[in-house]
């Protein structure tokens, strides 16, 4: 059947399936082995090392870039840190200056207050003294007036009684009591 279906074309090959034509096997196997060896050598000597080196080089480049980026990031972090520190320093300095100024002002204020207090105390002491003096002189005047008045009254009531010293004594007694 096979030869009939194949017609004249496959007349040279007894079996219908060329795959089972064992007379061509050595040929195919030989050329296959040659091909495989050539491909293997090409791959092993040229292609694979080249691709591997390109890949590892790319890996290296990427790793380097990443490392550089990491470094830059670190630097940025450092800069931020420094900026923050400077800011904090400036703030602390400002606070210190404010505190100093405050203390100085307080000192001045205290001194002024003290001085004012002293002045006020001095002035009030003087006023006190003068008030005392005035009061004392007023008392004296009152005494004198009272004595005079009493003498006049006594003279008017008892013209006989001329004893001024007795009147003085009596007035003094009354003023004290």
């Amino acid at each position: 059947m096979a030869t009939e279906a194949q017609g004249a074309e496959a007349a040279g090959n007894a079996p219908g399936m060329p795959q089972l034509d064992f007379s061509t096997f050595p040929n195919q196997i030989f050329w296959l082995l040659v091909t495989l060896v050539v491909i293997y050598l090409v791959l092993n000597k040229v292609a694979l090392p080249r691709i591997a080196s390109v890949l590892s080089e790319r890996q290296g480049t990427i790793a380097n870039d990443l490392a550089a980026a990491e470094e830059l990031k670190g630097k940025a972090g450092e800069a931020e840190e420094a900026y923050k520190k400077a800011l904090a320093d400036a703030r602390a300095e400002a606070n210190r200056i404010i505190a100093d100024a405050k203390a100085e002002i307080q000192k001045d204020l205290d001194a002024a207050t003290e001085k004012a207090d002293a002045e006020i105390a001095a002035k009030s002491a003087e006023s006190e003294k003068r008030i005392g003096e005035i009061r004392a002189s007023a008392m004296e005047n009152v005494e004198a007036v009272a004595k005079d008045t009493a003498i006049e009254v006594v003279r008017a009531v008892l013209p006989a009684a001329e004893d001024a010293s007795a009147v003085d004594k009596a007035v003094d007694q009354r003023l004290k009591g």
Binding site: A2, A5, G16, M17, L20
Partner: peptide, 8 residues
């Protein structure tokens, strides 16, 4: 199938 068709 192929063997039956072509090779036997």
């Amino acid at each position: 199938a192929l063997l039956l068709m072509f090779a036997v």
